[in-house]
Each structure stands twice: as C-alpha cells, then as structure tokens.
Design a protein around this nucleic acid. Structure first.
Lengths: 156, 156
DNA sequence: GCGAACGTTCAGAAATTTCTGAAGACAGGG
DNA sequence: CCCTGTCTTCAGAAATTTCTGAACGTTCGC
C-alpha cells in the first residue's frame, strides 16, 4: 500500500500520462514529485535526487511549472537554498491555463473568419468560433462551481 | 477580404496555433485545409497539392484526423479517389476527446491515491482526483448546453 | 484478368525537442 | 570583501518526432 517503490511508480506513471496530455516531460515529472511528496516544500536538490537528473534539467523544469503558476518560491530565512511549494489551486490554475490556449485558437479562428468571403468555409469558421467562445465563457464558471461545491459540501 | 494568399495565411496560422495546443503538425494542417476549403469534400490529392507535401504525409495526416473522428470517408461511386469531409460535430468531438485524455489522467491519479498512505500526498491526490472527476462529469453537459443554445437561439 | 490510378506502409533522413555538463552569476556568512 | 554553496544559462549530445520517397497493395475500368 505504502511501499516506496509503488509510490514512485505511481508518480512516474502520472507524469507519463501528463506528458500524453501535452505537458513537457521534465515539467510533468517535477509536478508529480511535488504531488507525491510527503514534505510540504522541496528544494531543487531534492528534485534532482528524487528524479535522478542534472541540476540544469531541474532548473528548467522548475522555471516551467513556476511560470504555469503551479508552484511558488518560498524564501526560507536561514537557508541558502530556495524552497518550492505546490500551490493549493494548482489544478484549477492548470485548467484555466489550458483555456488560454483555447483563447489563442479562438483568435486564430477569428482571423480566419475575416479572411474568407461568404461560403462554406465562412460558415464552418463561424461555427468553430461560436463553440470556442462558448467554452471560454463557461470555463471560469465551471471552476467556481467546483470550488463552491467543495466548500459547501465537504463530503462527496 | 478574400485574397487567396490571405486565406492560406490564416489557415496556416490556425494550424500552427493548434500545434501549440498539442496537435501534431500535419494533422493540424490537414484539419485547417478542410476548415478553409470551399469545396465540401477533399481527396488525398487535393490535400497534397494544397499543403505541398508528399502522398505519404497526407496518408498519415488523414489517418490521424479520421481516428480523432473529425473527418469521415465518403465513398463516391464513379470516382476512384476517396473523398473526405469534415464532420459537422468536429469541434464538440474534439473537445470530448480531449476529455478522454482527462480520463487517463484521472485513472493515473486514482492509482496514486491507492499507492500512498495517509498524509499530505494523499490529501493532494484526493483533491486532484475530485477536480478531475468533476470536470469529467461536467464536460458532456457543457457540450449539450452549447448545442441546445445554438439550436434554440440562432442569434448570438 | 490486365493496366492504370490511388492509397498505404515503412525505412531512413531531416528537423525538432529534451537533457546534460560545464561555466558563470548571485547571495550570504565569515 | 572573498569564499562557498546554490541556482541559472547555454552549447552541444542524445533522443524523439516528423517527413519523405520508393515499393507494395488495392480497386476500378476495360
């Protein structure tokens, strides 16, 4: 149940799955390490050891997941090392961020709508535009609904 | 407004954006070609010409977008060529399919919940599991709501 | 059945992404 | 101030993905 090997396997498997979902490998592995850690914060050194990779790779991975808003830097007074902690709202953040990708797509589609004259292509582009616009509007409500439900009804 | 060059640029730009969203390059270019085409159906040859790539590449791209359920094969009687058409529900399909990726992630997380004993990691994993479960439940409703709204209120 | 037109597969080339290791930057203690 | 431990950057190596071209099937008209 709590074997160290089993824990690592599960972490690696989740990382791989996230890679399949479009995340970069090292970022995914780092994120999984945070998720599966018993400690509240990790240092770059911790990550390097846990993942068995170079300091440079860790630096890049941290930069990425930090930019995505999934972890935050913690400045610890008496320590020369920088600590990092996974944010509580990491998953809702990740979801919202995926929707900024949707926003990029939407902009490209709108450009297309402007670029073509009336006809089949124009109709298709308008349909796509409408769907993505709908998604973009609904996403924040969805997240809010989850958070409210979670606070309001602690039990499943 | 309707310059051929501008149309192609818009199509290429959308394809590139879809690549940024995680789609493979050739599949994205093929999809954009369907989206921007004035004709209702395209053949493999049409695509090869439009995109300026080899027949092999087109074959692979078609295979991919067909598997994603975005286009369908049309068997035309008097023609030796196979025709393809973009499905009407391509975008909602694509969205649902992205949520089968979410399903994979969910499964990996559940494996993690089982693999770790009580503690911080267990709590984090449960939270993540709950969020992804919520998303998976809500996605079909979201799509249905879009379709109903579109039928019910034709104007924006 | 035969020939021609298409489509598919696959090995290898090309391009791209990812990782590393070494060099350098930065901060804090002494 | 320097020294040490830690983090970052970056050029190149390694791995992976993507594309092509040629060989092979398949199907249709004859």
């Amino acid at each position: 149940m709590t074997g160290e090997t089993e824990r690592r396997e599960a972490a690696e498997h989740l990382a791989l799955t996230l890679v399949g979902a479009g995340m970069q490998r090292m970022g995914a592995r780092a994120l999984a390490a945070f998720l599966f850690a018993e400690k509240d914060t990790l240092t770059a050194g911790d990550l390097a050891e846990e993942l068995g990779v170079s300091a440079g790779s860790v630096s890049g991975a941290i930069k990425m997941v930090a930019q995505m808003g999934l972890i935050e830097r913690i400045h610890v007074a008496g320590s020369r090392r920088e600590h990092f902690r996974m944010r509580d709202n990491a998953w809702t953040t990740l979801y919202s961020r995926q929707h900024s990708v949707v926003d990029d797509v939407l902009r490209a589609v709108e450009k297309g709508v402007d670029a073509v004259g009336p006809g089949r292509a124009h109709d298709r582009l308008e349909y796509m535009r409408d769907f993505y616009t709908f998604l973009l509007n609904e996403a924040p409500m969805l997240v809010e609904r989850f958070e409210r439900q979670r606070r309001g009804e602690p039990r499943s």
